[in-house]
Design a protein around this nucleic acid. Structure first.
Length: 280
DNA sequence: GCCGCATCCTGACCGC
DNA sequence: TGCGGTCAGGATGCGG
């Protein structure tokens, strides 16, 4: 599941393989992939034709390819999206949704997405950021991210701390997996009311978010073939380094207590019942 | 305005 | 072997 570190690995791959190249044609193979692009597939393809990708950028889980100062191709990988750089004559992937071909005849850029939660669109840039994601907060690795502002907003909310971590308008890039990991690092229960958090505890939580994501990025960066811009949930990181997520009934590495799984927002939350005490 | 839930989707996995 | 049910996940839209 691509969260910030996985998306950053993809961005770095794209920087190397598609920046500076000119799009010869775009082809939409599944309308759901461009559902956020209101004007439709024909408009989407005509907007991209003959345009040059000048660079790559990312905020949280969103990735975009600026086509100049004013517009860009924006992508969100959803749960299963991949942006692949592959030879033009390689077989079409089963779940290929959008295909870009380049005027140099080199490798295609292909958007492949099994579960179709991801999407791509053409968009205007406003102050360097795609208009549709103007409401997304900076991610915790951006200079624009302000720890004090985050702490103030968090304490003003009336919700549980994990819900807040997943709220992209408060902090972007955190998904279910890294939320559980950061909460484990900070010894916080997922249901802890945000308005009871002290500023030092919030600082600890932010440090946990940054630590787990930096570590994932480091490991994710080594587990992909440089010729193949890939994203999947099978990188070595997931097997070796997770402390809470997916570890139901396995011992907590700090105290040995079996990790528990709780239902949470129609999905799962994993935590150590001893290190992360449930609020009253 | 804020909060929280249902919704979209496909394939892996499980039990019968 | 095959079938039906369950689960996984991010963002959005809507009801309370």
């Amino acid at each position: 599941m691509p969260e910030l570190p996985e998306v950053e690995v993809v961005r770095r791959g794209l920087e190397q393989w598609v920046a500076g190249r000119t799009i010869a044609s775009a082809e939409v193979l599944h309308p759901r992939a461009i559902r956020r692009h209101a004007p439709g597939a024909d408009e989407f393809t005509s907007r991209l034709k003959d345009r040059t990708i000048v660079s790559t950028a990312r905020r949280g889980k969103y990735l975009w390819l600026p086509l100049g100062q004013d517009d860009a191709l924006l992508a969100h990988l959803g749960m299963s999206g991949q942006l692949l750089v592959v030879a033009p004559d390689s077989p079409l992937e089963k779940h290929l949704r959008v295909r870009l071909r380049f005027d140099d005849g080199g490798n295609d850029l292909r958007f492949v997405d099994q579960r179709t939660f991801g999407h791509v669109m053409y968009t205007e840039l406003v102050g360097g950021v795609p208009a549709p994601i103007a409401h997304i907060a900076p991610d915790p690795f951006e200079p624009a991210f302000d720890d004090e502002v985050f702490a103030t907003k968090l304490r003003a909310k009336h919700t549980e701390v994990k819900r807040a971590l997943l709220d992209q308008s408060l902090i972007s890039g955190v998904g279910n997996i890294y939320a559980d990991e950061a909460l484990w690092l900070a010894r916080l229960h997922w249901a802890r009311p945000t308005n009871t958090l002290t500023r030092p505890k919030i600082a600890e939580l932010l440090a946990g978010v940054r630590e787990v994501m930096a570590s994932a990025l480091q490991q994710g960066g080594t587990s992909f073939d440089s010729l193949y811009v890939n994203v999947n949930g099978e990188s070595g990181y997931f097997d070796r380094s997770l402390e809470a997520y997916g570890r139901r009934d396995l011992p907590c590495s700090r105290c040995g207590t079996p990790i528990r799984r709780d239902p949470f927002m129609n999905r799962s939350s994993f935590s150590c019942p001893r290190c992360q005490r449930k609020p009253r």
